[in-house]
Computed example of a mutant assay.
Amino acid sequence: MGHWWERNIVEPGKLPLLLALAAFLLTFVVTRVITRLIRAGKGPFGNVKAGGVHIHHVVPGVVLTVVGGFGAVASDRHGTGGVVAAVLFGMGAGLVLDEFALILHLDDVYWTEEGRKSVEAVVLTAALVGLLLAGFAPFGVNDLTRQELQDRGGALSTIAMNFLFALVALSKGKARVAVFGAIVPLVALVGAVRLARPGSPWARRFYGNRPRARARAVLRAYRHDRRWAAPRRAVQDWIGGKPDPRPARLPGGR
């Protein structure tokens, strides 16, 4: 284990990336716990205000991201400064993406249906960073044996193939499958060979003159969403908290 850690994490300079990912996830979890306690009226926590203005945690998140980002650029990635900068950057990114939906909608939608986009952004970001961390690229590793070169070459070939399948899945309107397929073998392949979602670039390009294919795509998307919408919402609620119910609309659209 120690040899693997040295060869694949320390020697290629991936320790700052690992610490940034750990800080990112820990900050997101702690932030969600605190905000849920505030929402429930429990614990010693409360909203931060200055001059009557609610200071969202995206504000210190931006500060930490800027400090950590510039600190990482100015520091040696193998030195203490690079490690500290990576942790600060991970913390800032966790705070910023926890309010990704607020930035997207320019409105306080944290506990609304639109706020689920923040959870999705965090999960997808963690998956992509995990892919970078788990990569078996030989760059930065010295004196590789023939067996190590073969192992890493095979891993790189698999990753490259999965990446191509992920691009096809992305063009078919399957963003989540594309991201996780780049990490988990065969997931991207399944997304690449299945029908495209209606309105996706693939569907517009290849289903334009194929009414049967368009109809099958619409039917399959409907069945897929109907089957997986509830489990996906349950997972999102478990991670980020259940959103507030939408207010009932009065007759006449008011």
Rank of each mutant, 00 (worst) to 15 (best):
I239M: 14
G241V: 12
D108E: 13
L19N: 04
V129A: 09
R214I: 00
G173K: 05
A188Y: 03
H105G: 00
G79P: 02
V63T: 11
W238E: 00
K42Y: 02
S118E: 06
R212W: 08
W4G: 04
F139Q: 13
G241D: 11
V187D: 07
R254L: 08
H3E: 15
G241N: 10
A134C: 05
L189I: 04
I239N: 03
L19F: 05
V96Q: 06
R210M: 06
G140H: 03
A192G: 08
G199R: 09
R223P: 00
P251G: 05
G41Y: 04
Y222F: 13
G130P: 08
L128E: 01
G71M: 06
R77C: 00
G153P: 10
I239F: 15
N8M: 10
D98K: 01
E113L: 09
F28S: 13
G252Q: 06
V53P: 00
P243G: 05
G82M: 10
V129G: 03
W202V: 00
L195M: 05
W228Y: 15
R233W: 04
G208V: 06
R246N: 06
L88S: 04
A217I: 01
L133D: 06
V177G: 00
P231W: 07
A155W: 02
A155S: 13
L104Q: 11
V58F: 15
D244Y: 00
F28M: 03
S171M: 15
A93M: 15
I34G: 01
L64Q: 09
V83H: 11
P185F: 06
L95P: 12
A229I: 04
L102G: 02
G43N: 09
E99H: 12
T145L: 04
R246Y: 02
A196I: 05
R214M: 10
Y110E: 13
V218S: 12
R223N: 05
L19H: 04
M161Q: 09
R233F: 10
G94A: 09
R216F: 14
V29I: 15
F89M: 13
P247C: 10
G90Q: 02
G252W: 04
L124D: 03
P138M: 01
Y222K: 13
A192Q: 07
V187T: 12
L124Y: 12
G79H: 01
Q236S: 11
A188P: 05
